[in-house]
């Protein structure tokens, strides 16, 4: 307060600067801070326009051209889209990716749900939570290489252990029937602690008195789980699934450093196929068309999940 009364006294009362300041102050209360606001959002908005909006438009445009990076794009209409319908490798890529997503999400959700409930009902230990989260903090590439070594056919510890127990060795990356399940389980390993913590956060919103009441009524842990936890967790679980499924479709890093799409086409997932088309064969137009399709698939999957699981509504009222 002291400064405001002081400053007009030291300056001529009619001087413009104080009056300007007062008027801008007044406007900030009554309505618009347009000028400062524009300055504040300018950097982020430039980033948004240049690296999100503009490329989204350009990407859609490329998908209708024969763009090859080195020459200018020519409009070819829906040719790329007709081509991808007939391209067996595209169908293979989506099939393989779907297989990956089903194994990855299925195993991950069940294990994470189990871990989350155990964290909730068994222990509050920060150490345990911290340890379970560790794999998620390490780069995909690091995780992929660590398992690539542990699953090595000859001297990888997993195969050595299988051998000592008397089970036949498995060519985890070399056998086309095993490659996708292997990569899916590696990423379950990386994500299970993280997903468990997301679900755990949801569990903490369930009022504890519900469990106490149920226990006093003679309900066991298992029954409480199905009658209380699952229904009340549904919205959280739905959101977790939307996030993890969308992420799962974008599998790339693990494939890129281990199998590079092989054996034959067994792990040539959509992301990797797009990557190869664009950067080994420079078919940017065609690669863009596939990424448009992937975007549409992801959007519909997310939409369907939200509808089916009624993610927005809670049973807790």
């Amino acid at each position: 307060m002291s400064t405001t009364t002081k400053s007009p006294a030291t300056r001529p009362p009619a001087a413009p600067p104080p009056r300007r300041r007062r008027s801008s102050l007044a406007s900030s209360w009554s309505g618009s801070d347009l000028r400062p606001a524009l300055l504040f959002v300018a950097p982020a908005t430039i980033g948004f326009l240049v690296f999100y909006v503009w490329p989204a438009i350009r990407g859609t445009y490329y998908s209708f051209t024969d763009f090859k990076v080195l020459s200018a794009p020519n409009w070819v209409g829906t040719e790329n889209y007709q081509r991808l319908v007939e391209d067996e490798l595209v169908w293979n890529a989506f099939g393989v990716t779907l297989q990956y997503v089903v194994i990855n999400i299925g195993a991950q959700t069940v294990i994470s749900l189990g871990l989350a409930v155990l964290m909730h009902r068994l222990t509050r230990s920060m150490m345990i939570r911290g340890a379970l989260l560790m794999p998620y903090l390490v780069a995909n590439v690091v995780v992929a290489l660590a398992w690539f070594w542990m699953l090595d056919y000859q001297i990888g510890i997993v195969n050595v252990l299988l051998d000592t127990v008397g089970i036949d060795r498995v060519a985890f990356f070399g056998d086309s029937a095993w490659a996708i399940p292997t990569i899916a389980m590696i990423n379950v390993w990386r994500h299970m602690g993280y997903t468990a913590l997301l679900i755990f956060a949801g569990l903490q919103t369930i009022p504890p008195h519900l469990y106490e009441a149920a226990a006093l009524d003679g309900s066991g842990e298992v029954r409480s789980f199905f009658k209380i936890t699952m229904p009340l967790l549904r919205p959280v679980l739905a959101m977790v699934l939307v996030i993890t499924v969308t992420g799962s479709f974008q599998i790339f890093d693990t494939v890129a450093v281990t199998t590079a799409g092989g054996p034959v086409n067994a792990t040539r997932v959509v992301y990797y196929y797009i990557f190869e088309l664009a950067f080994s064969r420079f078919e940017f137009g065609y690669a863009s068309a596939i990424s448009v399709v992937l975007f549409l698939v992801l959007a519909s999957v997310a939409f369907a999940q939200i509808k089916l699981l009624r993610a927005g509504e809670s049973d807790l009222s």
Partner: peptide, 16 residues
Amino acid sequence: ALMIPPIFTTLPNFVL
């Protein structure tokens, strides 16, 4: 823009 999968903007961003 949170909903846009990275691959969709990655190729044009590379060109840019």
